[in-house]
Write a protein that binds this DNA or RNA. Structure first.
Lengths: 338, 338
DNA sequence: ACTGCTCCTGGAAGCGTTTGCAGACGGGGA
DNA sequence: TCCCCGTCTGCAAACGCTTCCAGGAGCAGT
């Protein structure tokens, strides 16, 4: 390459990277040669020499859940535009996570890391910190790290208060539990806490039998709802930790022949693209924006424009009332309707 | 590192990689030292020196569509287990795609590439080939490349024949069109072709007004269906190119007050996780397996176990009859019911 | 004791960039 | 005319590994 353009490798590097002084004429000559050879500087060599890899790592627990797909999509959009590459680590289970931290493939390979809602132990967080590269957390706040997320407690409040305002008293919580113990999401806890405190604030202390859990995803929501259906007393309303669980709950309810929202109201959290189709009342969040914002924050830190100290950005959520919520049928759930 | 273990860098490399002869005792000593320092060999340096990066590139047009999320999920599972890293390139538009090929970030950075259904021009395919690294195509067959996919034509046949066997004659096709011209999927074409040939084989040559298109995703399905709803004569059945379009179509139909399947039958293709919830009849495919199979094929080639010549694996599809299809109401769609 | 092995280890040459340093060149001010 | 300075370019030393090659040690067979 250097030979074809008739210059030294040093000049090739300067011409192509735009760093340092190169005469316009030389630069053009080098660019021409590069084009002719379809030469691209080796990212490996470049990274090794410069210490910057122009690559970031993204760590996700799921890919097929709406929230994560949307966030990653937002991230890649920004990174792609900035000329950064994205290394994707899909850590679906505690075992995956342990292998990941044992191997630490991120070390000296990425300039920064985006951790999406990853449930991490103390040790793992320390291991990430030890990499000594910028880190941004998306979807859950991590001590001392910049983050982008929503206020999960407030979002849960909004959902539950909506039900309470409609007159519901007997409100259940449908949550997801991890496949592996110790792999639970922070946001799950927060949403549960939000549910409890909203209930408490309304003077409705729900029995723990109204808090049911299933595996992540639609099936989990269906299973959890089935548990409620087999309970002593059917709630008049259900708040699901996120929309996919709500879809599962709806499914169970329909199969049970119950009318929604007449018999049971359901509210979710996310505003998944299917929520509108299923006419699900939900508290909406903008996942793709979370991704692009986090990516932008990370880039700013990487480019040294880190004049901003680590910030926690909290994106707004908004209740979207649709057809799965309504006032409870009078008497239903309390005494058999006459 | 070498110092701590009291050996040369060469021995460190051999001990950690397992290549070459090292006494068990030395190896243990090196491993200990590595553990103590939490030392991980620099992937960049290692790649530069050895020529193997232990990284593959995955190119996808979408992340938030079920099919792609599932495939990528299958891919990462296999790659993670094999100790490979995955570089994700999300090329959502023709512009993204062009930028990608201009920058060619894959060059000298990955050992292999997985291309998921990417609509590529001749030039782009050549550019990929020029990288001279193993390439596997998922979801669409590419000339001369190993691939993993389903038989789209046959799958469409299965869907349409199901409708025909139920007695439908007036069957519409709902398809997705790309945001950018020249960014259309091969599988879309094949499914359309399958629709036409199944119709033709039954002696039902549909007017082109029965082939409607919307943007990718649920919205697109809804828009396309709306077009049918505003047409001169409502079909008694609809085949949607993939489930998300079918969901959109169902949505439109419901909003229009039509009963499913009494007024209109709908069949999709994918068996998206929501299909069961919506009770959608569909032709199922296993996207995650496609991803893991393709990843395995790629790994085999990379590890030199490429005793197998480039293969095209065709995974089976299966009609899953659910509640959105039924025989047409007699007379409906032909003359107003009396 | 010497030869010929095998097994283990270290030296050193890359891999393809980036970047600090220095030299060459040319122009403007004293 | 001389000197200084700014601009452009090349040299060469990293960057942190892998791998070829050679040498040393230990051992068995003559």
């Amino acid at each position: 390459m250097a030979a074809l353009a008739g210059v030294s490798p040093a000049t090739v590097s300067r011409s192509l990277s735009g760093q340092g002084n190169v005469s316009a004429q030389t630069r053009e000559r080098v660019r021409d040669a590069a084009r002719r050879l379809s030469y691209v500087p080796s990212p490996l060599a470049s990274g090794l020499a410069s210490g910057r890899t122009r690559t970031i790592g993204v760590v996700v627990p799921f890919l097929t859940r709406w929230y994560f797909g949307s966030v990653v999509s937002g991230v890649t959009r920004v990174m792609e535009a900035a000329g950064y590459d994205v290394l994707l680590y899909h850590l679906g289970s505690a075992a995956d996570r342990d292998r990941f931290f044992a191997r630490m493939p991120l070390a000296r390979r990425v300039d920064g890391v985006l951790s999406l809602c990853m449930p991490l132990t103390e040790d793992h967080t320390l291991a990430l910190r030890a990499l000594d590269i910028p880190l941004v957390s998306v979807g859950s706040r991590m001590a001392g790290l910049p983050s982008v997320c929503i206020d999960d407690v407030a979002a849960a409040h909004a959902a539950v208060n909506h039900l309470i305002n409609l007159g519901h008293e007997n409100i259940a919580f449908v949550g997801g539990i991890p496949d592996d113990p110790g792999f639970g999401f922070v946001s799950s806890e927060l949403r549960l806490r939000g549910y409890r405190s909203a209930m408490g604030a309304a003077g409705l202390a729900p029995p723990s039998a109204l808090e049911v859990f299933g595996r992540y995803g639609i099936d989990g929501g269906a299973t959890a709802m089935a548990r409620l259906l087999s309970g002593a007393r059917l709630p008049t309303a259900v708040f699901a930790e996120y929309d996919e669980l709500a879809f599962g709950a709806l499914w169970s309810l329909r199969r049970a022949g119950l009318a929604i929202p007449q018999d049971v109201s359901v509210v979710g959290l996310d505003d998944h693209e299917m929520a509108e189709v299923l006419d699900l009342t939900t508290v909406g969040q903008d996942a793709a924006s979370q991704g692009s914002l986090a990516a932008t924050m990370l880039l700013e830190t990487l480019d040294g424009r880190s004049d901003t100290p680590p910030t926690d950005i909290v994106l707004p959520t908004e209740l979207r009332v649709r057809g799965t919520t309504a006032p409870p049928r009078r008497g239903v759930g309390v005494v058999p309707s006459t």
